[in-house]
Simulated assay, not measured.
Amino acid sequence: MKLTEMHFSEAQPVESYGAGFFKIGGQRVEGGMLVANESVQSWAGYEEIESLLALQGRVDVIFVGTGAEITHLPADMRQKIEQAGMGIEVMNSPSACRTYNVLAAEGRRVALAALPV
């Protein structure tokens, strides 16, 4: 699905997503991904919490896209992120991508960690 065109100053937008991939700033990422400011990298999922904790001080909220359906995060993952002073919002990946794009276009300090649909 192609997302609506917006203007971004520093953040990399999620341009589209599909079965097993995301397209961010012209770059196709297979599997899960993490995007924050100008950085885009693969993300292995809930087991890879260290890459999320490394965002401390750079972002205020991390949106977590759980794939096609919304699921709960492991309690210890949520607790560690909140203890690091960051908010965490969980939604399905399509909603997380759209929400991230809107807030990133507004210049907010947000990140997106998402699993593919």
Results as ranks from 00 to 15, higher is better:
residue 3 L to R: 10
residue 60 D to Y: 06
residue 25 G to L: 15
residue 52 L to K: 01
residue 39 S to N: 07
residue 59 V to Y: 14
residue 48 E to M: 08
residue 23 K to M: 03
residue 6 M to N: 07
residue 98 R to G: 02
residue 66 T to I: 08
residue 28 R to M: 10
residue 20 G to Q: 04
residue 110 V to C: 10
residue 73 L to R: 12
residue 48 E to T: 07
residue 74 P to R: 13
residue 60 D to C: 11
residue 30 E to V: 00
residue 72 H to D: 09
residue 1 M to H: 05
residue 47 E to C: 09
residue 30 E to C: 02
residue 14 V to Y: 12
residue 37 N to P: 05
residue 24 I to A: 06
residue 55 L to P: 10
residue 19 A to D: 15
residue 16 S to K: 15
residue 52 L to G: 09
residue 25 G to N: 04
residue 55 L to K: 11
residue 66 T to R: 00
residue 72 H to Y: 09
residue 98 R to M: 00
residue 3 L to Y: 10
residue 10 E to H: 15
residue 36 A to D: 03
residue 56 Q to D: 09
residue 71 T to R: 04
residue 87 G to M: 07
residue 52 L to M: 08
residue 52 L to D: 06
residue 49 I to D: 11
residue 100 Y to N: 04
residue 6 M to P: 12
residue 36 A to Y: 08
residue 98 R to V: 01
residue 25 G to H: 08
residue 116 P to F: 05
residue 84 A to G: 11
residue 113 A to Y: 11
residue 27 Q to R: 09
residue 8 F to I: 10
residue 62 I to D: 11
residue 32 G to M: 00
residue 43 W to C: 07
residue 55 L to G: 11
residue 109 R to E: 15
residue 88 I to F: 01
residue 79 Q to L: 13
residue 29 V to N: 02
residue 62 I to C: 03
residue 57 G to N: 06
residue 94 P to C: 00
residue 64 V to F: 01
residue 114 A to D: 08
residue 19 A to E: 15
residue 95 S to C: 07
residue 69 E to S: 03
residue 40 V to W: 07
residue 14 V to G: 13
residue 107 G to K: 14
residue 46 Y to G: 03
residue 13 P to M: 06
residue 59 V to S: 11
residue 23 K to Q: 05
residue 90 V to W: 05
